[in-house]
Design a protein around this nucleic acid. Structure first.
Lengths: 204, 204
DNA sequence: CACGTTCTGATGCACTTGCATCGTATCCGG
DNA sequence: CCGGATACGATGCAAGTGCATCAGAACGTG
């Protein structure tokens, strides 16, 4: 048997290099040579890991999709001290909005892929799956909040989840565009959630 | 004097060619040759109009920014039969969300520029200006609605405008990503607006 | 009608791109 | 300790890139 290489690990390394470069100068501007240099491997190694550039980009998208989903899921699952459903909702959405400075790269990459989705069905498929998963997550949180009586019963969890998700993504874009500071975006998001919670105690 | 050429018109033609190509395959993937072919002029003509590729892209962004802003403003100004403030608000936002099929290209281009804004201060500046203008427009509409008593007085127009704008942009992204059909996105947007309007008649 | 100015589009050029190739270094089972 | 399978990285290659250049066409003016 030949020399052993942890391919999964290398693929992940390369994927992160790809993300770094995408954030720096756009999705089509990443070249195999630059990726190799950024990842600290040779060009040949990159070509061995991914048969084509498209494959590489697709893997990078799946990589960060998984990353984002996992962060949100862990935020929910690993909550040792049981939190109020409402704060859980706030924190999860804040995380999904990728507002903190460290997530900026991920936000840029995510948006780059969304932009190219209409031009590539494979990209679009990954994005649809991820969005569906995230929507399910948020809707579940809302239902949980309704169980604990923190969220008004008359709200439709699915509809509200759609609104929340779109709002979060829109704020992400606005922060990238420089229209909002991250803190401002967070405040807007929080205000909308507060609105949902306190609203219509008269109808309940 | 030499042969007369309408440069403004040509620049606009080229800008639209650029947008078409950006929508087709991304922002860095547009080449001067392709732009020239798409616009039906020679490469030399393109180079005479724009000193550099960056200039060309920047002009294209300004072009569609103006296009989007103008559409929204006209929707408001040219309303011959005075409409209810609420429907005006709905229609304007629906237009800003670029949801109809013909606006898909513009949505893609817009998102492409947002994605690259962090990498180019000049792009970011144009985006900031446009967003500021749109925000002002929406806030104005809300205040107008408050004057006509259609919109609850206790709402902060600026805050609600921020939320609405972010929601619209988020829905645009979701449609591009294939997560929503345009009609669905429109419904979500409309529902949020309805919510704003009917809400809290008890507090007024 | 010719002049001179402006504009044009083809071509050149240096460079980068994605991908294929290939000799060599690296490892493991025997 | 060695045979052979495997991964490596350098190099090659055709295609495409942005931009510069330039001979000539196209025009308004004298």
């Amino acid at each position: 048997m030949p020399r052993q290489v942890d391919y999964e690990d290398r693929r992940r390394r390369i994927a992160e290099a790809v993300c770094t470069l995408i954030a720096r100068s756009g999705m089509e501007a990443v070249s195999l040579r630059d990726v190799a240099a950024q990842a600290g491997v040779s060009m040949g190694a990159v070509q061995r890991c991914f048969r084509t550039k498209q494959d590489m980009l697709l893997f990078a998208l799946e990589h960060i999709s998984q990353h984002v989903s996992e962060r949100a899921e862990q935020r929910i699952a690993a909550t040792s001290t049981p939190q109020a459903a409402s704060t859980l909702l706030s924190h999860t959405l804040a995380e999904l909005a990728l507002l903190d400075e460290e997530s900026k790269t991920q936000a840029q990459v995510w948006l780059a892929f969304v932009t190219h989705a209409p031009a590539s069905e494979k990209l679009a498929a990954v994005l649809r799956d991820t969005y569906a998963k995230l929507h399910g997550l948020i809707a579940w949180l809302i239902r949980y909040g309704q169980d604990t009586r923190e969220v008004p019963q008359h709200l439709d969890p699915d509809r509200e989840a759609h609104t929340l998700l779109a709002l979060a993504d829109g704020l992400t874009a606005h922060v990238l565009a420089g229209h909002h500071a991250p803190a401002t975006a967070l405040a807007i998001l929080q205000r909308h959630i507060d609105h949902l919670l306190e609203e219509a105690s008269d109808r309940d």
